[in-house]
Nucleic acid binder design. Structure first.
Length: 500
DNA sequence: AAAAAAG
């Protein structure tokens, strides 16, 4: 990463007349998310003269907002540490309010009334002007888990499509069915008053599937789905890309990784390029390792880029612990006696496991002890997967066992405990931890700056070694719980995490 | 020695 790349905003280019350009200010101050409202720095950052002319109440460049505005959401919001904006020759204004973005009345209504949003988060205020301002440059955006990336690309898609044109104009590609469903739900809620319609292109159980040749072409403006199904719809010409204006990759590092969906993603990108000269490409993720960062920077050459340093990516508000477990039995008992008994009344928990089989085994073991929980992985019937997720999101279940199916993107604000029953490892080198997946798993807790705790259950020498590498990688100290049977240790852990 | 998607 070019560390000096954050100062390239000196050239002003022609902007639409009603826009008042101000400098993109890469946040350089390190701070914990939850400190945001108490942080005196917030109010003392220099104000740019252009924004002062525009509205004396509005202090663009800092995060101060009109005091008449409801700042409730503001209090909850995570603060982005160290974003670097490489803006090339285009100057963008950061948005302090959603009104600053020239969003339509209909979209604003969806944001305020249905989403109950009051003000853009940091990533939103920086990236949305880049997305919505001509010449609609491509964008690679990295921001913390739970900081509101989905809103960025959903608003981008909603704003850029023409509701009068009954043809697909925006496409969002996700790594799992669950994420596609979640994104389309956000989209539909935010776009409720726009008249824009959407289509979810994901695999369904065969019993419910309508043969594709019997289906009519998609006329919805926005399509959200998984790579295989999108490719299938495109190949039979039921998904036209002729009018495509904006292409989004959610969890983009995984979508463009060698061992992820690279081939599918590039195929789709090229097919769109062939039939539409100017389709804006947006890549969003909380993680971009060096390899994939280099690759995506080549794929999306002339776009805007914002990255976060890896040491600042680990969420401070989500406290991480390592639990010494002498054997597998101890791991199960930690979950049974500590996570269930202490954690249950605190909210919801997700337990991550390495394989489908261990998900089944753990689920059965806990059920045999009489504990209610559910489990999800890719070998489960799709209708049932949807049901498990819905029950969990509706708060009907408290503990969900999952493979890495839900490691990325899954957004359930009530989750404040994550358990790594085993640590994620790289496929090629199983002695190397998968740092990105680790971070994504942790990110299931502490959504939008909320408190959370992660318990890593360690048994073998290898697991301790993996843990050490993770601590070293993110340069953070993970507190040890030495006695897995000690209630006091768990209680003080939960207390330190702010959960009790 | 994997997960997911999809075939």
């Amino acid at each position: 990463m070019a560390d000096d790349a954050n100062s390239s905003t000196d050239t002003i280019i022609e902007k639409p007349s009603e826009e008042k350009p101000t400098e993109v200010k890469p946040a350089e101050v390190k701070r914990a998310w939850a400190d945001e409202v108490d942080d005196p720095d917030e109010e003392e950052q220099p104000t740019s003269s252009t924004s002062a002319e525009k509205d004396p109440e509005l202090n663009i460049g800092s995060l101060k907002i009109d005091e008449n505005k409801n700042t409730e959401k503001f209090l909850d919001e995570p603060e982005e540490g160290n974003i670097k904006a490489v803006t090339g020759d285009t100057l963008y204004s950061t948005a302090v309010t959603f009104e600053d973005l020239n969003l339509s009345e209909e979209i604003l209504k969806g944001l305020y009334v249905d989403m109950k949003f009051t003000r853009p988060s940091k990533i939103q205020s920086v990236s949305l002007p880049m997305i919505l301002t001509p010449p609609y440059k491509d964008l690679i955006a990295q921001a913390h888990n739970g900081s509101g990336k989905t809103t960025c690309f959903v608003l981008g898609m909603l704003s850029r499509v023409d509701v009068k044109l009954r043809a697909p104009q925006a496409l969002c590609i996700c790594p799992t069915r669950e994420l596609a469903i979640q994104n389309i739900e956000v989209l539909n809620k935010m776009g409720k008053y726009t008249g824009i319609t959407s289509f979810c292109a994901i695999p369904v159980d065969r019993a419910r599937d309508i043969p594709i040749n019997k289906r009519s072409p998609i006329t919805d403006q926005i399509v959200v789905g998984t790579p295989g199904t999108i490719k299938k719809w495109m190949s039979v010409k039921k998904l036209s890309v002729d009018d495509m204006k904006i292409l989004v990759f959610d969890e983009a590092d995984h979508m463009l990784a060698e061992d992820g969906f690279k081939d599918d993603s590039l195929r789709i990108m090229k097919d769109i390029e062939k039939s539409t000269p100017h389709c804006q490409v947006l890549l969003f993720s909380a993680t971009f390792n060096e390899t994939v960062k280099n690759f995506v920077s080549r794929v999306v050459k002339d776009g805007n880029q914002m990255f976060v340093r890896k040491e600042e990516l680990s969420l401070d508000v989500v406290k991480q612990y390592k639990v010494n477990c002498p054997d597998e039995y101890a791991k199960i008992h930690v979950i049974k006696d500590k996570i269930f008994e202490l954690g249950e009344k605190l909210g919801q928990s997700i337990i991550f496991v390495h394989t489908r089989r261990s998900a089944d085994v753990l689920h059965k073991a806990l059920s045999d002890y009489g504990w209610q929980c559910t489990s999800i992985h890719g070998a489960i019937e799709k209708d049932h997967r949807d049901k498990i997720v819905k029950e969990f999101k509706d708060g009907l279940t408290q503990v969900l066992i999952s493979t890495d199916l839900l490691a990325r993107g899954f957004d359930q604000s009530q989750v404040n405990v994550v358990v790594n029953y085993d640590l994620p490892v790289k496929y090629e080198y199983q002695s190397e931890p998968d740092y990105e997946v680790y971070l994504h798993r942790c990110g299931r807790a502490g959504r939008f700056g909320r408190k959370g705790a992660v318990f890593n259950l360690l048994c073998t020498q290898k697991e301790h070694m993996l843990m050490g590498k993770i601590e070293n990688h993110f340069q953070n100290n993970i507190v040890e719980i030495s006695d897995w049977q000690n209630n006091n240790e768990f209680e003080s852990a939960l207390k330190a995490a702010g959960l009790i």
